[in-house]
Amino acid sequence: MRMGSPWSGLIGPALLLLLVLAALLAPLLAPGDPLDMVARPLTAPFTDAWFPLGTDQLGRDVWAGLVHGARVSLVVGLAAAAATLGVGILAGTVAGFRGGLVDDGLMRLTEAFQTVPTFLLALALVSVLGASAGNVVLAIAISSWPPAARLVRAEVLRVKTLDYVDAARIAGMAPLAIAFVEVLPGALQPVVALAGITVGEAILVESALAFLGLGDPNLQSWGSMVANGRALIRTAPSLVILPGLCIAMAVLAVSLTGDGLARRLGLGTRS
């Protein structure tokens, strides 16, 4: 995302730092299980010093939910993005480097996955495999690898014609080694730029799944907090507003940071 310098330069990392701190310090900031019903239901925000942001309809501490929710969002977001990029890089490199039938097959597979709307596929996978944090990561990776694969493939195709790759080939390196040692690093630059967006999207998908009731029931997640508050938007709108703000903040933080990082590495200007 191309933005005026102060924005991506400072705000992204600052927000991200805040979230990471909240996630790391969650057990200190809000001891105990955030899913525990600990207080009078529907305490309004700013009325009780012990529960500064109030409680939901089951008497769960909203503040505890928000700080523990940061863990879920960040961990699931990062893990899912890493898995997504991993699958994408593997498929893209193999397809681009081998070419021929392998490339054709992999590209058809990529198209098949792209034909099915990403979120719909993730949704179907989680409802079939079961709603657990691990399955959410898996579902996001399976449903969102194709763009990374296509990007990497295109880069590999470009890089593999370059001189130093030819040199490696002539020097007798094994094809697989050439692919992953010589070609891939040259093709990885745009992937770095993609990483921030992928993490942001993974966080969004995780929250949307949780909103639809497909989050891990043993963890408090921002998306499920919004879903819980939804029926009460007239009585207690803060139950919807606060966790939603956190999601938006987290996505903004990672995409700004990713963008800033990519620019720092001199990649931001390439389209």
Partner: peptide, 14 residues
């Protein structure tokens, strides 16, 4: 940028 980071379900509820 901000709207792009906003989850659709939440924006809808707002």
């Amino acid at each position: 940028l901000v709207l792009n980071a906003t989850p659709g379900f939440w924006l809808g509820l707002l």
